[in-house]
Simulated assay, not measured.
Amino acid sequence: MKRNIAIIAGGYSSEVVVSLKSADGIYSFLDKERYNLYIALVTDKGWYVKHPGGENIPIDKNTFSAVIDGEKVQFDFAYITIHGTPGENGLLQGYFEMLGIPYSACGVLVSALTFNKYVCNTYLHTFGIPVARSIRLLPGESVSDEEVVERLALPLFVKPNDGGSSFGTTKVKTKEEIQPAIRRAFAEGKEVILESFIDGTEVTCGCYKVKGKEQVFPLTEVVTDNEFFDFDAKYNGQVDEITPARLSAELTEKIQRQTSRVYDILGAKGLIRIDYIIPENGEPVMLEVNTTPGMTTTSFIPQQVAAAGLDIKEVLTEIIENEFELN
């Protein structure tokens, strides 16, 4: 009997448009002979299942089920592909834990930790993971331009501490741009992080681990003529993504080992992706950990899976079936 898989998309942030594209990608990747697939929309207006006929069918939150074509469908598994709240910060994970429904992403604590860039990087730094210098601002807090420049120098990045897809992110080049950039970031998130700029080669590395198996993917090198890897670079094609990255075997292996180590330090599960910047003649610096990475047909993870000579359908099946073994 086929299991019912809900691909959960949407969310409450500006990243909803990216989430919907990822859901379509995952739908195209998953094994339709093995699973019944449904796209479930979790929005601030309600939770619904997208019906092929076009209508939105309400989800019963008490049981995470829906009545489709006159029959109750109980979802057996949740593949979370919400970028931002509530799918990337542990809220949905806690909901599924309470219902006893297995899901694809990291657990509650890891999701909450990695969603807060400042807290995550500060935590990992205690294990010797190189990270950029940063300042965190909570609601109502402020920082002077002089302190920012003294601690972080120019240029620097200002971005929401609890967001992604580069929404609300500014590369600040002058002291006069600092406060407007902070206001812009606060308009997108509840916290703001100011981060030192590191000039170098940007790469990203995906990883997953299941019972008896570890898979760290080839790296992707990110090259753009934009000021940084912004929304247009990520989603409007203003970037070259080179997989595998043009790095030495030694440096590639070093970053892959670091990715695997961070996975274990955090106690991650499912697919994660870690972004790095490599300064010239310097140690790779970790930028951030993504626990619900983009999964469109052109996203980094599918590229890396292909470069590793693997089948994305088999990878996702392994991840799903591993969760059923653990539950």
Rank of each mutant, 00 (worst) to 15 (best):
258 Q>S: 13
148 V>F: 12
234 K>W: 02
281 N>R: 10
95 Y>T: 08
304 Q>E: 15
139 P>L: 12
162 D>F: 01
99 L>V: 01
182 I>F: 03
72 K>R: 15
294 G>Q: 02
147 E>G: 08
269 K>E: 12
186 F>W: 05
217 F>A: 01
240 D>V: 08
109 L>C: 14
179 Q>I: 09
313 K>Y: 08
7 I>W: 05
211 K>M: 09
35 Y>S: 05
322 N>R: 11
71 E>Y: 14
308 A>P: 03
11 G>A: 00
248 S>C: 09
150 E>H: 14
313 K>M: 10
236 N>F: 14
101 I>Y: 10
20 L>G: 01
97 E>P: 07
9 A>M: 04
178 I>L: 01
95 Y>K: 07
277 I>N: 10
257 R>E: 13
18 V>S: 00
15 E>S: 00
117 K>I: 11
103 Y>A: 06
48 Y>T: 01
3 R>L: 05
181 A>I: 02
32 K>D: 06
318 E>L: 06
37 L>I: 01
308 A>V: 05
34 R>N: 02
59 I>D: 06
68 I>G: 12
323 E>N: 03
187 A>L: 04
314 E>N: 13
263 Y>L: 11
295 M>I: 02
8 I>V: 14
157 F>Y: 12
156 L>N: 04
307 A>N: 11
152 L>G: 11
197 F>G: 08
205 C>H: 02
189 G>E: 01
218 P>L: 07
322 N>Q: 05
216 V>I: 12
169 T>E: 09
145 D>I: 13
7 I>G: 01
304 Q>K: 12
115 F>M: 14
41 L>I: 00
28 S>M: 04
138 L>A: 11
41 L>H: 00
326 L>N: 12
240 D>A: 09
231 F>S: 02
69 D>E: 15
224 T>N: 12
105 A>Q: 12
158 V>D: 04
97 E>H: 07
282 G>R: 04
100 G>P: 10
226 N>K: 14
148 V>D: 10
36 N>P: 04
295 M>R: 10
298 T>S: 14
3 R>P: 00
23 A>Q: 05
222 V>A: 08
226 N>P: 01
10 G>H: 02
86 P>K: 00
301 I>Y: 15
214 E>T: 10
29 F>S: 03
75 F>C: 13
201 T>K: 13
39 I>G: 01
208 Y>D: 05
18 V>K: 00
27 Y>A: 03
165 S>R: 06
187 A>F: 03
284 P>T: 04
319 I>T: 05
63 T>I: 11
314 E>D: 15
